[in-house]
Design a protein around this nucleic acid. Sequence first.
DNA 1: AATAACCTTAACCTCAATGTTAAGGTTTAT
DNA 2: ATAAACCTTAACATTGAGGTTAAGGTTATT
Lengths: 125, 125
Amino acid sequence: MKISELSRLTGASVRSLRHYEEQGLLTPRRLDNGYREYHDLAVEQVRTIRFYLKLGLTTAQISGFLHCVMKNKEAFCEEVLPVYKKKLRELNEQIELLTAIRSNLEERIRSIHDERSALQGFDEK
Amino acid sequence: MKISELSRLTGASVRSLRHYEEQGLLTPRRLDNGYREYHDLAVEQVRTIRFYLKLGLTTAQISGFLHCVMKNKEAFCEEVLPVYKKKLRELNEQIELLTAIRSNLEERIRSIHDERSALQGFDEK
DNA sequence: AATAACCTTAACCTCAATGTTAAGGTTTAT
DNA sequence: ATAAACCTTAACATTGAGGTTAAGGTTATT
């Protein structure tokens, strides 16, 4: 199939498909006119790529184990777990940071409300 | 004072101070030789800028109320609360998203462990 | 007068997937 | 034969604070 059909079947934009190829995640053969020609299996492969992207992995990380997971159960591919664990550590850090900022912000919003109702109370007297 | 002294007093890099100026947060006067000359008040102003940046606000947002908060209590500045609330909504969205990804990832890590110990158990039999 | 230690503007780099032209070749249907 | 609908590569834009470097002017010290 050609690129627009793969795009339609997977939901990935044509631009994204070309990008995945640049990053080494897809390697379609070329027709005589230079058009990309994809195997049927590419549909599953693109879905797999997008699945890992949604987990927050980069194309570079995905390329490290994509071939393995296309042929085996994920648990068989040694490269997967370290990447998952690294990503998990990053997520925990980010969540912790954002949560701290949120607390800070909530406290400041509260104190603005408090100060205003104090002024309000003062005016009312 | 000149830029490097302000940098030293505030912890902001010289590059950052020039950036704040580009964004309209600082407006030092210029000496005859073109050098920036800052008021003593600039120290407090830069500290205030950096405080809001740490809350995750952008320079554009900060510029909307910086002059007000430099002269008044924060609660007096009407522009602050909407920005805080907007930021809070964004934070909640981000945290929710990251937390969902984290759950997903934890589940996948767990299932890899499970599958491997199942294989392990199988081998042991 | 030379050197260190300042200062200036301007511009590119980071991160990373993907949107958006631009400029042009191919195929297909009318 | 022409237009619609494909396809190609290449390059810039997005986000945004701030690092880095280049090229050069100023001030101060020796």
